[in-house]
Each structure stands twice: as structure tokens, then as C-alpha cells.
């Protein structure tokens, strides 16, 4: 299984990744190039570069189809991979994924993370404000990584803003079982956007994660890991909320 992180790379002590491991899932969760302190190849400047580097990585994981999980920005990349190479996938999970355009041309789908005041972004991001990063309490190194991640995100996703205008019309190519999970209080991309995403993928199932904003992996790590594990192991379906 390959897990692609969201707006920020995973911390070493990620509760969510720990919860996946506890459920017996074997996975790789690499930092995307330019995130998490990893170097960005000088020519990398678009999501297409990240998609191709992930395809290289999938080839390295071996010939067997894999499960692919993408969160937020990583969900966009996961969807791009899935429309290109559905045969390399066994299952697909998208969590509060970015990447498509749903509404009218004057109605932004995705809150602008860089052009809005920090308190507005924080309010839209978190179900519980206590989950927002506290820069005063973080070590310097962690704040620098956080800023580098934002810089990488901005470089890759500024225009068209956090989506590929062509992606939605190719989502029909995704031929593997797909689960779309969404924080019920996500103000960055709304649950309705998530429903539209799921509707565009043949047979995809949509589920809400209760008491979570844009980062269920931080606000509800156990619930999210349980939902993913259940889907991947085809255990009995249950409501996450």
C-alpha cells in the first residue's frame, strides 16, 4: 500500500500511520519531492512531476497491484495516478482530496490557503481549533519543515489553483473499488465536493468522517485508519461517523 500525504508531510510520530500499522497494513508513506525536508529536483515544478515520480515508486514496489491512499493534495496525485494506471491498483482511497473542479467559474471549490488570512484558513481547516499547529510550541526545525512544505505546495499547486481542469473528465477510467472519505466539517473542500468526486468515479462509495475538518488523519486518526483498513480487507462495512 502507498499512502500519499496531504498539505503537510507526515510527522515521524504520526498517530494515523501508527494506527494503520497496528491494523497489520504494510505501507510506504514517502514525503513527496520537496516536502518533509526532501530535495526537490530542480526541474520539478508541477503536479505532473509528482505523479510521474510516484509511478516510478509504484514500479519499484513490484509487479503486484497495490492499494493507493491519498489525502488532500496527495489525494489529487492519487486520482491522477488512478486515471493513468488503473491496472496497477487494487483499491483506491481518497480522503478530502483536491484536484478537480466542480462549481461554476465564479464559485471557488477550494479555499485559497495562501491568499486568505491565517485565522480564516485555520477556522476552515479544523473541526477542533486545538488541532491547529502551535508554532510557539513546535521546535524550530519543525516550523522550517512546515514552511518548506507550504512553499512546495504553492509551487506545485498555485495555478490552476490546486486542481487539474482535465482530471474530472477522466475519472471514469478508474476501474478499481474506490472509497472517498471526507471530514464532515471540512471547510477547505466541502463534503459536497467530495460527493461530486465520488459520483465521477464509477462505483465509488462516499463516507463522512465525523468531527473532522480537512485533516481526518490528525483529528480522527483511529476512525480513519479503521475505515481504510475495513475497506482494504473487505471487512464488514460500517459507518464511520
Amino acid at each position: 500500500m502507498l499512502v500519499l500525504h496531504g498539505l503537510q508531510s507526515f510527522n515521524a510520530d504520526s498517530v494515523f500511520l501508527g494506527a494503520l500499522a497496528e491494523r497489520g497494513l504494510a505501507f510506504a508513506a514517502p514525503a513527496l519531492p520537496g516536502f518533509g525536508g526532501t530535495p526537490r529536483p530542480e526541474q520539478f515544478d508541477g503536479v505532473e512531476d509528482l505523479v510521474m515520480s510516484c509511478l516510478d515508486l509504484i514500479d519499484d514496489l513490484g509487479p503486484e497491484p497495490i492499494a493507493l491512499v491519498g489525502l488532500s493534495f496527495g489525494g489529487w496525485i492519487a486520482a491522477e495516478i488512478a486515471v493513468r494506471c488503473p491496472h496497477r491498483l487494487e483499491r483506491l482511497v481518497l480522503v478530502d482530496a483536491l484536484g478537480i473542479r466542480v462549481n461554476s467559474r465564479e464559485t471557488p471549490d477550494i479555499l485559497h490557503l495562501f491568499n486568505e488570512p491565517a485565522p480564516v484558513v485555520a477556522h476552515a481547516t479544523w473541526a477542533a481549533p486545538a488541532h491547529a499547529p502551535d508554532f510557539a510550541a513546535m521546535p524550530d526545525e519543525a516550523v522550517v519543515t512546515y514552511a518548506r512544505n507550504r512553499e512546495a505546495l504553492c509551487r506545485y499547486g498555485w495555478r490552476p489553483y490546486m486542481h487539474n481542469p482535465r482530471l474530472k473528465r477522466w475519472l471514469h477510467r478508474i476501474s478499481v473499488p474506490t472509497l472517498v472519505l471526507w471530514g464532515d466539517q471540512d471547510g477547505i473542500v466541502s463534503p459536497d465536493y467530495g460527493r461530486a468526486y465520488a459520483d465521477a468515479i464509477p462505483g465509488a462509495r462516499f463516507e463522512l468522517v465525523g468531527n473532522a475538518g480537512h485533516h481526518p488523519e490528525i483529528e480522527q486518526p483511529q476512525l480513519l485508519a479503521a475505515a481504510i483498513a475495513a475497506f482494504l480487507t473487505q471487512a464488514q462495512r460500517r459507518e464511520v461517523a
Binding site: A118, F135, V144, Y146, A147, C154, R155
Partner: peptide, 22 residues
């Protein structure tokens, strides 16, 4: 505002982020 200046990616080196973000 900070989101048009000190907090905008590309405007400051990430190394000075701890001071500016705080």
C-alpha cells in the same frame, strides 16, 4: 497583511519561518 507578505511562500526563506510564523 501577513498572508500577502511574511507568510506568503516564496517571499521569505523557510529558515526564518519560526520567527515570522510565531
Amino acid at each position: 497583511a501577513p498572508h500577502y507578505s511574511s507568510l506568503l511562500p516564496g517571499q521569505i526563506p523557510p529558515e526564518v519561518a519560526p520567527k515570522l510564523y510565531r
